[in-house]
Amino acid sequence: MTADIELEQNPVYLVRSPAFDGPIELLLSLAQRAEVDLKAIQLATLTDDYLRAIERERPPLDRLAAFLVIGARLVQIKAAGLMPQPSSTEEDDLEAWEEAIKGRLAEYKRFKELAESLMRRHATGRFSFAGLFEPEVIPQARVQVSLDALAAAFQQVLDRLPPPEQIAFEMEHISLADKLEELRRLLSGQAETSFTAVFSRARTRLEAVVIFLALLELIRIGEISVVQGSPFAEIKVRARAPQEE
């Protein structure tokens, strides 16, 4: 190694220790080739000696930096040697690890930029939309009333009921199944009835709520449909023939 020879003529630091005597550059290159046992050299003592030496005479900055680099490499090699299964590829592994870190940072940076471009694209709001009604939910044909209108009509039903004068502790038993049957009976006698008529027999809010749930369930399973002829007109409830869609 020509570099070794050059450096030896003007060493960064001359190491004086029982295990090694000579320029620190030589120590490093021998250690890199595993020709000297770093375990036998106390790097802490070496560093202390160096610190004392530079206190007496401060070398130029580039020389200080050179010592730091060489010292760091020595520590690295020694540390690697202390790890289980020391091998000469440890050095390469460290370099590979360094490369991997750098690569990862570069990779992250690329994705960060892509993320920003996705965000900008998303922010333009130029979406593509799928159609409004999903057939596997309730087909539109069964609900020809807006949800708002349905909710408003139900609110009117509730408003018509007498306000609760006192809190009743008596448990009311109103079953959804019963109300489903009642609605079916009501619509088997007539093809069509009005939304308010459906609730004519409701005495309490709870009963009205259960009837409303029953109504929604019948719409869902396709036995009835609700229709509003024009805005604000009475909502009609109709029985649907099976397979009519």
């Binding site: 994705f111 960060k112 892509l114 993320a115 996705l118 965000m119 998303h122 709001g125 979406f127 939309f129």
Partner: peptide, 26 residues
């Protein structure tokens, strides 16, 4: 998109977190 949005009144998420865009990009 603009004209469709006028008829849809949808509640589409118009913004995600930076972390979400990063993860989506990856």
């Amino acid at each position: 998109a603009d004209v469709v949005r006028r008829v849809l009144r949808p509640e589409f998420p118009s913004r995600l977190s930076p972390a979400a865009y990063e993860t989506l990009a990856i």
